[in-house]
Design a protein around this nucleic acid. Structure first.
Lengths: 146, 146
DNA sequence: TTCACTGCAAATAGTTTGCACATAG
DNA sequence: CTATGTGCAAACTATTTGCAGTGAA
C-alpha cells in the first residue's frame, strides 16, 4: 500500500519538520517511529507510551501527549476515537476508517471507498467536508453477532 | 416524524419499564423528560444534569450518569460521541446521525439514508452490523470552510 | 416490608499544565 | 547561546463506586 518503505517514512516526516524550521527531538522521532511500527495495533495513548518506553524509558507520558498534539498541529498525525474512552493516533498518511465492535472492542480497518458516496452527499447537500480517517463506525462484528 | 406526540413518549417508555417489572422513579422520569425536551440541543451529560436540576435540584449528577446507563441497558436511550470529550444521549427512537464540525463544534443531523450503502457493504463484506445513530462524522462545515 | 435506587463523598482514568532543567539549532 | 522541548508532580475533567439512608411496589 505505501509507495515508500516504512523505514524512510519517519525520516521523511522529520525532514519535513526540519524544512519548516521545527526542531527534531528524540521524543518526536520516537513517537513517530512507534506510530509507524505499531500502525496496525490501534494503541491508545497510554499503551503507545508504554511501547515507546521499552526503548526510551526516559520519555514521559506527558511528553507523549504533548508530542502527539504537536504532530497533529503539524498535520503529520491524526487521531481517532476508537473505544469509549480511548483515543488512538496514527500517521496522517495512513488514511483508513474503523469499525469498532461495541461488544468485544475489536477494530476493523475499512476501505476508504466505502465512504465515497457518503462524502459526496455531505458535500453536495450540506457543504460539509468530511475529514476521512476520523470516522468510527460502531456495531457488532460477525463473531459477536452469533 | 414521530407518530406519537412528545407528551406521551415519556409515558410510553415508563410503561414499558413497568411492564418489565422495572421501577419507575423520579430520576428516571426526569432524565427521559429532559432528553425529549432538549432532543435537538445535543447536550453533554453534565449540561443535561444542569437542565434537569432546574426542576429537580435534588437529582445528583451521579444519579444522572447511573440513570443514563440504566436506560441504555434497557434499550431506551443511545449515546453518541459528539465532540472530542463530550458524550451526548438521546432516546433510542430518535435515530439519526451527526456530522460535527471540528472547528466550530456544531452538530448537524443527517438523514439515515446516507448510510444505506455503507451499512450494506459492511454487512456484505465484513459481516458487521452497523449500529446506526452512534456514528459521528468529523470535518468542516460550510461556514468554517470559508 | 424489602430491595432497588439515590445522595454524597471519595476514588479513578485520561489528559493537561506550571515550573525548573535539558538540549537542538 | 537561547529559545524550545522535556521530566516531574500536581491539577483538572469526566466518570465511577462504596456506603448508608430513602422510597417504589
Amino acid at each position: 500500500m505505501a509507495a515508500v518503505p516504512n523505514r524512510s517514512q519517519v525520516a521523511e516526516m522529520l525532514s519535513l519538520l526540519r524544512s519548516r524550521g521545527e526542531r527534531v527531538t528524540t521524543a518526536r522521532r520516537a513517537v513517530l517511529e512507534a506510530l509507524v511500527q505499531y500502525r496496525d495495533d490501534h494503541l491508545g495513548t497510554e499503551e503507545l507510551a508504554l511501547r515507546i518506553r521499552e526503548d526510551h524509558p526516559d520519555i514521559h507520558l506527558s511528553t507523549v501527549y504533548r508530542t502527539l498534539e504537536y504532530l497533529e498541529d503539524q498535520g503529520l498525525v491524526h487521531h481517532v476515537h476508537l473505544a469509549h474512552r480511548a483515543v488512538s493516533h496514527h500517521v496522517a498518511q495512513d488514511h483508513h476508517q474503523h469499525a469498532v465492535c461495541d461488544h468485544c472492542g475489536r477494530a476493523f480497518d475499512l476501505d476508504i471507498s466505502m465512504f465515497d458516496e457518503l462524502s459526496r452527499r455531505l458535500a453536495d447537500e450540506h457543504g460539509f467536508t468530511v475529514e476521512l480517517g476520523h470516522i468510527t463506525i460502531g456495531g457488532r462484528c460477525a463473531d459477536c453477532s452469533a
